[in-house]
Design a binder for these strands. Structure first.
Lengths: 207, 207
DNA sequence: CCACGTTTTCGACCGATAGGCGAAAACCTG
DNA sequence: CAGGTTTTCGCCTATCGGTCGAAAACGTGG
């Protein structure tokens, strides 16, 4: 989500939302406050620090140090945005101001990584979804096609996916009705990455 | 590596090295400069941003926003440090100033994660090492015992480990001489995390 | 100099996981 | 009802990591 700068420097270029840090807030509170001017913050499903961008020349004039964030909104949310603000596909960004394109690249890379080895998917998905819809989300975020079979199996084995019982009617071209799933309640927080070298034989205990 | 504060606030408590950001440097240049006062920066094998700590109350008095870094030094390096500075085991830190204990916890957690799913091990290891020594390094950094057999196999399969041909003589208690290894040249940079949902069948191409 | 303990190394087996494929299920349209 | 479409599911295979135990290669003490 970018907004078009009206004034110099970099007038008419697209810019990430943000602003100065208030005296009595931390950076996460600040970015949520800044974002509230553009979109309802209650719609944010995930916010995490990305990195500090501090090149002295990243903006003209006096030094500005930026703490960049990755913020996610579920796919079923289509927030109303001000007239100077619009959504853009991350693979086809317009001319951006300052180093905001680099920031977007970092965010995209972070998102792709975390989608692979955490359960962050719940932050992108609507409350209920079909496997096909989830596959589209993952493919778009990762930048390559993922197999629906595999996606369902991997997420199911991790205990993240549970069927709602409902189905959706097929489109006009036919096809089998798709089953609806949701992310398992209690799994709506970020898990640690799946360790490769695990502690010895602390096998998960049965019920 | 901590240094003992001489002055209030938090006099006599142990503190992470650091300092103010200069006008014409970015944060990484700054932390390397600050660190140079404590230890030869050429000994640093890895430096990466950790997170921004910005709680308005994290230090008394005027607001201080800190960009925390994770910095690694190979295990065979034992840098000479100033008299007010000393190394401490991360599992048994002394009383620390401000939020520096939380920063250390974050750094430890980040190190453990990255050791598992990247090739960051090269930043901790000396140029040549035995599997046992590497196992000790990984165990200490991760906080739990890892299997020497597994460690060697995992790293070998990733193509990170190559034998030097040399061996070390066994200690006074005997035992088979241990073979020496090094990290494969060209693998001394951080790889991306190993994706769980990979792009479809881009099988690694043969020679 | 030989039996024994110690440390390292290596092979074998097993379970879990992920990728790939194709058949079957369940729907639409004409 | 035939043919096309989309989803779902089961099977097979490759790889990876955990575990175990045997073998290798050393030192020491009797």
């Amino acid at each position: 989500m970018l907004w078009e700068r009206a004034r110099e420097p970099h007038a008419h270029r697209w810019s990430l939302p943000g602003g100065g840090l208030g005296e009595y807030e931390d950076v996460e509170t600040s970015i949520r406050r800044q974002l509230a001017e553009k979109v309802d913050v209650r719609q944010l499903s995930h916010v995490e620090q990305l990195a500090v961008f501090s090149n002295p020349a990243r903006v003209p004039g006096p030094r500005v140090v930026a703490t960049a964030f990755l913020g996610l909104v579920p796919s079923h949310i289509d927030p109303v945005v001000p007239s100077d603000t619009a959504w853009h596909p991350v693979d086809a960004l317009p001319a951006t101001a300052f180093d905001h394109q680099a920031i977007c690249r970092r965010a995209r890379s972070r998102l792709a990584s975390k989608l692979s080895y955490t359960n962050l998917g719940f932050a992108l998905a609507p409350p209920e979804f079909t496997i096909s819809a989830l596959r589209s989300l993952y493919s778009a975020a990762l930048g390559y096609k993922v197999s629906a079979t595999n996606l369902q199996r991997v997420l199911s084995r991790r205990g993240l996916l549970e069927p709602t019982g409902g189905t959706v009617q097929p489109g006009p071209s036919g096809g089998r009705p798709a089953a609806l799933f949701r992310f398992a309640s209690g799994e709506m927080r970020i898990t640690d990455p799946f360790a490769v070298l695990r502690p010895p034989s602390t096998r998960s205990l049965g019920p």
